[in-house]
Design a protein around this nucleic acid. Structure first.
Length: 545
RNA sequence: GCCCCCAUAGCUCAGGGGAUAGAGCAAAGGUUUCCUAAACCUUGUGUCGCAGGUUCGAAUCCUGCUGGGGGCGCCA
């Protein structure tokens, strides 16, 4: 279904031959949409912008969509949609099972790498962001029709497991009986032990070798640690209400068998060279090389990331690979992508994107830490929010706070602010939805029946709301393309604001005849769009508050 | 030393070539015999970090600075 603005845009393009960059009008008096295309064409056409605008308008056939276009200011062309066209578009949107969301003409296979907690550690604020943002992008990309493959690249391998397993054996604990917080405490004791006891440290190192060589006892304990951790992760995912399941697991350890061959290939074809004992790939723009094999023969995460790219391209058929990882990894990913291209693992046709997000800060503006100086766990964060609001509202508040700012920026975790139902918050959107639900519920109780047709858009508040509703599909498309969830947040916030004004100024149940029927239909569409939009954000659209 | 990100109202943030730079919060006042007042309305607020440049036009693009954050060979 082509949206009204894109329809209009196509018509203008037909006359101008360049993208009109049709935008929502900046002021109500400028109509519904505006284009500056005449200003941009003025130079090459050798005419004044207003003359160009006049010529464009003369050739433009949009009478079936708009009132006669107006030329204003330095040469803007302003469009006002005919209200019956707008009403018809909303009626269609109500009948559309997708509520105006488009289906992409070019479905892609999109791999999204997100969450990625570490075994034997609880999830903390950084994982919250990755998980919430990744979940949203997953929903949006799948929503517009792409084939999404979620990959939870958990940290289930590395030298720390030698220390962990050795500590478990030292203490004589039953690994399978641990909870995740207990495993984390054990991790901390093991680390301290490792630093203070040279004999223990040596045993831990030997234990790493045992793990790598497949020693049965070591592997068993390692697997138990993973199981304990997964139970903790899954509990957190359930609490967060995200889509991730065990099917999406993509542990680092699953690449172990791929690494020697992959790295040998790089060395054989000259992509990687030995430098200071390590096998390195040098790429332009980086002074330091990417080390694919350490001097001691071991593999680091760079090698694993290359292997992951290969699997995602070769085995999964990815057209696009998205990494939702914090911004401190920006250099790393840029380098990995360059190396993967150089090594021929990543064809030009496959896009890789690092969706980099900023840190979560405490009220003091510094990285969010506990009094003890450790990272705040995800569960602590949710607990704190639930002290201020009921669980589904608290969760909405946290997710929305995480998604509503530009991802690139750090943001301050201010629970009190984000649970407010006033202002640009998750609960405000939920409230708007709950109000609509209530109106429709009462309408049903009073026997007004289900309305399917918008016929009357007399009031400015009705028109403003209708206009916003028609933009939904384009907004979702934009998020699918640019991977910026805050655009969807801003849209839903605007929509909720327009709805609040409509609600104040346009009585629904107290209206009569076709006005009531039309407004009930408006309520139904708005509720659906809000619910759909909130669901895309991973936020529950509550029926009551 | 090199690289990346950030700087917009008192605070939190949108806006990323185009009309008089916008929201929310905070402050003050107002609106409920009326569908959820968890809401809405009104009122005030700006050296868009600084300096150059490109352009008919710059908060937006380029260069240089300042300030803050982050990263930079064998951790992930």
């Amino acid at each position: 279904m082509s949206s009204l603005p894109s329809l209009l845009s196509d018509r203008i393009f037909g006359v101008t031959g360049i993208d009109p960059e049709l935008r929502p009008a900046t002021k109500p008096q400028f109509g519904h949409y505006q284009t500056n295309v005449a200003l941009r064409l003025a130079k090459s056409e050798g005419q004044s912008p207003r003359e160009v605008a006049t010529r464009i308008v003369a050739r433009l056939e949009v009478a079936d969509l708009c009132e006669p276009p107006e030329i204003a200011g330095p040469g803007f062309i302003n469009f006002r949609l005919r209200t019956e066209v707008l009403a018809e578009a909303i009626t269609d949107q109500l009948a559309d099972p997708r509520s105006g969301m488009s289906s992409t003409q070019q479905p892609q296979t999109v791999v999204i790498d997100y969450s990625a907690p570490n075994v034997a550690k609880q999830m903390h604020v950084g994982h919250l962001r990755s998980t919430v943002i990744g979940d949203c992008l997953h929903r949006v990309l799948a929503g517009v029709g792409h084939h999404v493959i979620a990959q939870n690249h958990i940290g289930d391998w590395g030298t720390q497991f030698g220390m962990l397993v050795e500590q478990i054996l030292d203490e004589g604990v039953e690994a399978s009986a641990l909870t995740l917080p207990e495993a984390e405490a054990l991790y901390a004791r093991g680390s301290a032990h490792f630093r203070s006891d040279a004999d223990f440290a040596e045993r831990a190192r030997r234990r790493v070798v045992a793990l790598q060589s497949g020693d049965e006892q070591t592997r068993t304990i390692w697997q138990q640690l993973i199981n304990v951790s997964l139970a903790g992760f899954n509990a957190a995912y359930e609490r967060l209400g995200v889509l991730l399941t065990d099917d999406d697991l993509d542990g680092e350890s699953t690449y172990n068998d791929d690494l020697p061959q992959l790295v040998d290939t790089l060395e054989a074809d000259g992509t990687a060279v030995i430098d200071d004992g390590a096998l390195c790939v040098f790429v332009d723009g980086f002074t330091a090389p990417m080390i694919v094999r350490k001097r001691d023969g071991g593999f680091g995460y760079a090698a694993t990331d290359l292997a992951a790219i290969r699997r995602r391209v070769r085995d999964f058929g990815a057209d696009r690979i998205v990494y939702v990882v914090d911004s401190r990894q920006s250099d790393h990913f840029e380098q990995v992508f360059l190396v993967a291209r150089k090594a021929g693992l990543l064809p030009d046709a496959v896009a890789t994107e690092h969706v980099a997000f900023g840190s979560v800060l405490g009220l003091d503006g510094k990285p969010f830490k506990t009094r003890e100086g450790t990272a705040v766990t995800l569960n602590d964060l949710l607990d704190a929010a639930e002290e201020e609001a009921a669980p589904p509202i608290a969760l909405a508040a946290i997710k929305y706070a995480d998604l509503s700012n530009g991802l690139n920026k750090d943001y301050v975790f201010d629970v009190h602010r984000m649970v407010q139902t006033t202002g640009n918050t998750g609960p405000y959107l939920q409230y708007a939805h709950a109000r609509m639900t209530q109106v429709l519920r009462k309408a049903e109780a009073e026997g007004y029946g289900e309305q399917t047709k918008v016929m009357v858009l007399e009031e400015p508040a009705e028109q403003a709301l209708a206009l916003l509703l028609t933009r939904f599909g384009d907004v979702v498309d934009e998020v699918a393309e640019t991977l910026q969830p805050h655009k969807l947040c801003a849209y839903l916030y605007d929509l909720s604001g327009a709805l609040a004004i409509f609600y104040e100024q346009c009585p629904v149940l107290k209206a009569e005849g076709i006005v009531r029927e039309s407004r009930l239909a408006m309520c139904a569409v708005t509720k659906r769009v809000l619910a759909t939009g909130l669901t895309l954000l991973g936020i529950e659209a509550l029926e009551r508050m």
